[in-house]
Amino acid sequence: MPLDFTQNLVLENSRVRLRPLETADFEELKAIAFDPAIWQFTITRADDALSLAAYVTAAEQARQAGQRYPFVIIDRASGRLAGSTSYYTIDLDNQKLSIGYTWMGTDFQRTGLNRAAKHLLLGYAFDQLGCERVELETDSRNHKSQTAMRRMGATEEGTLRSHRVLQDGYRRDTVIFSILRPEWHELRRTTFAEYNV
């Protein structure tokens, strides 16, 4: 099934709700985005009003162009916006896509919210979009992100050297992880079992 970029896709489980990122989210995102530490290893940054507005605009434009599907992450316990994540590099002819552009406010990090969001995104990618492969990538210096990817069962495939330019001009090495369809069936039963209600 193709990904319909015009559809307002909403995904939720017991812990988190994902819905499309909208311009109207700007004010609530301001409350969590203005921490420079969140953006240390990211390609773009949104730690002030101007850069956050540019981030939201770019995300919406990428969705309209069929290049990226950005979501806001909502903590169901509090009802608060916790951050954002996206599908991107969507290549359904080859049954694969990437999950990334993920960031969360400091209060929501290490709470299990990210794993709950990944459960929804992986499930939709494999079960509804027919993916055989989902990729995740991170800065080689971002050990916290790499640890999180390993903990959720993704396989580290290697490092792409001098792969992406960050907002400060630094050329980062990118570590690539992946999950394949047969692996997802096992991870759903084990690593993500708490969300399979």
Rank of each mutant, 00 (worst) to 15 (best):
M1C: 08
P2M: 13
F5P: 01
Q7M: 10
Q7C: 10
Q7S: 11
N8V: 00
N8Y: 01
N8C: 05
L9W: 04
E12C: 02
N13L: 07
S14E: 14
S14P: 00
V16Y: 00
R17C: 12
R19A: 07
R19H: 10
L21T: 09
E22P: 04
E22G: 06
A24F: 03
A24G: 12
A24L: 12
F26H: 11
E27T: 12
E28Y: 01
A31G: 05
I32R: 08
A33Q: 06
F34N: 09
F34I: 06
D35Q: 15
P36I: 09
P36T: 10
W39M: 11
F41M: 09
T42P: 00
I43D: 00
T44F: 10
D47M: 07
D48V: 08
S51Q: 13
S51G: 05
Y55K: 14
Q61I: 01
A62K: 13
A62N: 13
A62S: 15
R63C: 06
R68C: 05
R68G: 01
Y69M: 06
Y69T: 03
F71T: 02
F71C: 06
I74D: 01
I74V: 15
I74L: 12
A77R: 13
S78T: 15
S78G: 03
G79E: 08
G79T: 05
G79N: 09
R80P: 00
R80L: 12
L81V: 15
S84H: 10
S84V: 11
T85E: 01
T85N: 07
S86D: 05
Y87C: 06
Y88F: 15
T89I: 03
D91I: 01
D93S: 12
D93W: 04
Q95F: 14
K96G: 07
K96C: 14
L97K: 03
S98P: 00
I99C: 04
I99F: 11
I99R: 05
G100R: 10
T102V: 10
G105T: 04
F108N: 06
F108E: 04
R110F: 02
T111E: 02
G112F: 06
A117R: 03
A117M: 11
K118P: 10
K118Q: 09
K118V: 10
L121I: 02
G123K: 14
G123L: 06
D127N: 14
Q128V: 08
R133F: 02
V134M: 07
V134F: 05
E135Y: 09
L136D: 00
L136P: 00
E137R: 11
E137Q: 14
D139H: 11
S140Y: 10
K144W: 01
S145K: 04
Q146F: 09
R150V: 13
R151L: 12
T155A: 12
L160M: 14
V165P: 00
L166T: 01
L166G: 02
L166Q: 12
G169D: 11
Y170H: 13
Y170T: 14
R171T: 10
D173H: 15
F177Y: 15
F177A: 06
S178T: 03
S178Y: 05
S178C: 08
I179W: 02
I179A: 04
R181S: 13
P182K: 09
P182H: 11
P182V: 11
W184H: 04
H185Y: 03
E186P: 00
E186I: 14
T190P: 04
T190G: 07
T191D: 01
T191K: 08
F192M: 03
F192G: 00
F192V: 07
E194Y: 01
N196M: 02
V197E: 13
